[in-house]
C-alpha cells in the first residue's frame, strides 16, 4: 500500500507539460529514488508533492494515506507529515541554527538538538548559535536542513539532490541521516541524478520527460540509467518537442 500516490499528474508551465500524466506510488517506510537526467521533471515532482506555491495548479491527484491532498497548502501537508529538503537550502539572516531546528523538532530539548547536529557532522559547540545565513557554506546549510528534517520526524521526506554541494567526506553523513530517517519509519524519496545517491535507495523510479518510464530494483534502474540515459542526446530538449515527436 502506498503512503503517497500520484495519479495522472499533469503540470504545465506556459503551456508546456513538465509533468505529463505521471503515475507513481511510494511505499510506506521505504527509501525510494527518483532518478533521471536534468530537465526530466524530478524537482518539479518534488515541489508539486510538497505543495509549493506555483506548483498547485495541476491536473490529476495526489493522495496521502488514501486521501487527496491536492487542495492543501505546504504547511497543511507538512502538518500531515510531508516535508522537503531543497536542492539549495534557504538562508535565514540572524536565525540561529538552534531556533531553526527547534521550529520543526518534535523533541525541542537542547540535548536532542545537539545530538541531531552531531549526527550530520556539525559540532554543536561551533554551530548551535550560528545563523543559517551566508556565513555557512552550501554544504553546511545542507546538513543543517537535513538535521531539521530528521528533527521533524516526518512521515515522508523528499530530499532534492541531497548530495548537492556536499564534499566527498561528508556525503556519508548525509547517507547516515537517510538511514536515521528510515529507522524513524519515514518514507524517504531521494530526487537525484547521482548514482551514489541512487545506491542508497531500496527501490527506484526512472523519470524522463515528465513521466515515470520505468521502476523497480535499484540495480535494474541503475543499469538502464547508465546505459541509456547518461549518453542520451535528448537531455535538456524541451519536453514539448520530445512529447510532440519533434525531436
Amino acid at each position: 500500500m502506498g503512503i503517497l500516490t500520484v495519479k495522472d499528474l499533469t503540470l504545465k508551465f506556459n503551456g508546456k507539460s513538465i509533468l505529463n500524466r505521471l503515475n507513481v506510488d511510494f511505499w510506506d517506510g521505504h527509501v525510494h529514488a527518483v532518478i533521471g537526467p536534468n530537465g526530466a521533471g524530478k524537482s518539479t515532482l518534488a515541489s508539486t508533492l510538497v505543495g509549493l506555491s506555483g506548483y498547485r495548479d495541476f491536473e490529476g491527484d495526489i493522495e496521502f494515506e488514501g486521501k487527496s491532498i491536492r487542495d492543501l497548502g505546504v504547511d497543511e501537508r507538512a502538518k500531515r507529515g510531508i516535508t522537503l529538503g531543497w536542492q539549495e537550502p534557504a538562508r535565514f539572516e540572524g536565525l540561529p541554527i538552534l531556533d531553526f531546528l527547534r521550529a520543526s523538532a518534535k523533541n525541542k530539548s537542547r540535548e536532542h538538538i545537539e545530538a541531531l547536529l552531531n549526527k550530520v557532522g556539525l559540532d554543536p559547540v561551533n554551530y548551535l548559535y550560528r545563523a543559517v545565513d551566508k556565513t555557512l557554506s552550501g554544504g553546511e546549510r545542507k546538513k543543517v536542513e537535513l538535521a531539521s528534517i530528521v528533527a521533524m520526524e516526518p512521515k515522508v521526506a523528499l530530499l532534492d539532490e541531497p548530495d548537492s554541494g556536499i564534499d566527498i567526506e561528508s556525503i556519508y553523513r548525509i547517507f547516515d541521516a537517510v538511514k536515521v530517517l528510515k529507522s524513524l519509519g519515514t518514507t524517504v524519496i531521494l530526487i537525484t541524478h547521482s548514482l551514489a545517491v541512487l545506491d542508497q535507495a531500496e527501490h527506484a523510479f526512472l523519470m524522463c520527460h515528465g513521466q515515470v518510464v520505468d521502476k523497480g530494483e535499484v540495480k535494474k534502474i541503475r543499469r538502464y540509467f547508465e546505459d541509456k540515459c547518461i549518453p542520451c542526446d535528448h537531455k535538456n530538449i524541451p519536453v514539448q518537442q520530445i512529447i510532440g515527436g519533434q525531436a
Binding site: 506555491s53 504547511d75 507538512a78 534557504a90 536565525l95 520543526s104
Partner: peptide, 28 residues
C-alpha cells in the same frame, strides 16, 4: 522571501509563525 517562508512552512509552521520567525531573525 518566499523560499524562506516555504522552507519553514514545510516544517509545519503556519505562515504567520514563519513570517514572525524570519523577521525576528532579521532584527536579531
Amino acid at each position: 522571501d518566499n523560499k524562506q517562508l516555504e522552507t519553514l512552512m514545510s516544517r509545519g509552521l503556519s505562515e504567520d509563525d514563519a513570517v514572525e520567525m524570519i523577521i525576528n531573525g532579521l532584527l536579531a
